[in-house]
Design a protein around this nucleic acid. Structure first.
Lengths: 219, 219
DNA sequence: ACAAAAGTGTTACTTATACACCCATGA
DNA sequence: TCATGGGTGTATAAGTAACACTTTTGT
């Protein structure tokens, strides 16, 4: 009998690297996998996603978007499962991961160093990564990934990581400032063996506008 | 019990208007609806889409992309159905519609004059239309919608229809020609009460490259 | 004094926009 | 000859891309 599941690709950014949340499955196949699980008969897809993320990793209150639905007959060799995949961006430091119902463990992995994955989860992650890279060029991304206060160079490194190429410091600063989505907090970096950088924050109102209206970022 | 369906939003372009394919349902609720139906237990999503399009409208060999998965509990009031929606673009004159298994009738409607629709199909169409409009700005669209030979003004009218605003004739021509995706056939329009326009065709190879690499069209 | 990252402007080039007149044809 | 849509170029504005030196701070 055909069943429907959700799977969640949750990206984080820490140690200047893109990170991905995975869980260790308790039941066969015992392997690392995306958090997710079956959709209940009387539950919306969004609800199922939130519930599974809570149950399997102890993560709540995350903004997720639907990614794609994976429905190949053989994607789960045991029985037919159609999976609706979601993806989202978070600041890993905001969450304390906890293993619970169906997972032995939940853990952040560096995106460039993922373990073997169950089912077709590697494919799902590939699609999510592609989507994230596309999103970066037409919507501001960062608010969800960076801490409240950050250096301009942090933001630039994030973009460089996501886009996979280097950006010119002056042009990057000009472009971002021209959108008025970040503003100086007035604070500076402390105890560094070089000139202290200014700490910035996102302007939430402006940021929300930009997310809505689109953006066209190409550096 | 939870079931999975596919629904197909098929756009056409005829009489200088955007068109949409709908079917008249044979069973309750008797109403106009998107072609689509349940996914069989041993059938990929793509296969289900192709089968339903053939069964309900007699349409085959169409390129479709997955749009979004609609999973609200109450979207079908009778039982839980999660629907994976697809959308595509075709030239209506290439198909002869036929009613078959589950549909009393299949018919093209002008997009700006759609009937009442079953279930949440109006929502699905809304999402598809939004997606189509977005696609137009970053990928060439037209090959799928226009006949083999067409006037430059046909192409412009198509874009104007899709984007919902007027475009400058000279700038439009310059831009499109700069991509080398269309070329002159050498033929001209016949029997018109004004200067005959040149007929163009798409350069398929170049077009395929453009679809791949992206495009950024903004007039 | 040196190492390390922060901060800052200008110029050249490319791309987008705005705009108006003549041409060919059939009725 | 008139009505209709086809065809064409240029000037200006805006945006993007390339590029290097000085500042601050801790060791």
């Amino acid at each position: 009998m055909l069943r429907v599941a959700v799977d969640i690709v949750l990206f984080g950014y820490a140690e200047q690297q893109l990170q991905l949340l995975l869980i260790r499955r308790k039941y066969a196949p015992i392997a690392w996998a995306l958090p997710g699980g079956f959709v209940l008969d009387e539950e919306d897809l969004d609800t199922a996603v939130a519930r599974e993320l809570q149950e399997e990793a102890g993560v709540a209150d995350v903004y997720l978007e639907q990614l794609y639905t994976f429905g190949a007959v053989a994607r789960d060799p045991r029985r037919r499962v159609i999976s609706v995949a979601y993806y989202g961006l978070v600041k890993p430091e905001k969450f304390t991961l906890s293993a619970t119902t169906d997972s032995a463990e939940a853990k952040w992995f560096r995106f460039d160093n993922l373990p073997e994955l169950a089912f077709d989860h590697a494919d799902i992650i590939g699609v999510a990564h592609q989507r994230l890279r596309a999103k970066v060029t037409y919507q501001p991304v960062g608010f969800e990934l960076l801490p409240d206060k950050f250096l301009f160079s942090d933001l630039q490194r994030l973009y460089e990581t996501l886009l996979g190429r280097e950006l010119d410091r002056r042009n990057f600063r000009k472009k971002i400032l021209s959108f008025s989505i970040v503003e100086e907090t007035g604070d500076k970096q402390q105890n560094v063996a070089h000139r202290a950088g200014s700490l910035f924050r996102f302007n939430k109102e402006r940021y929300a506008e930009m997310v809505q209206s689109g953006f066209y970022f190409e550096l």
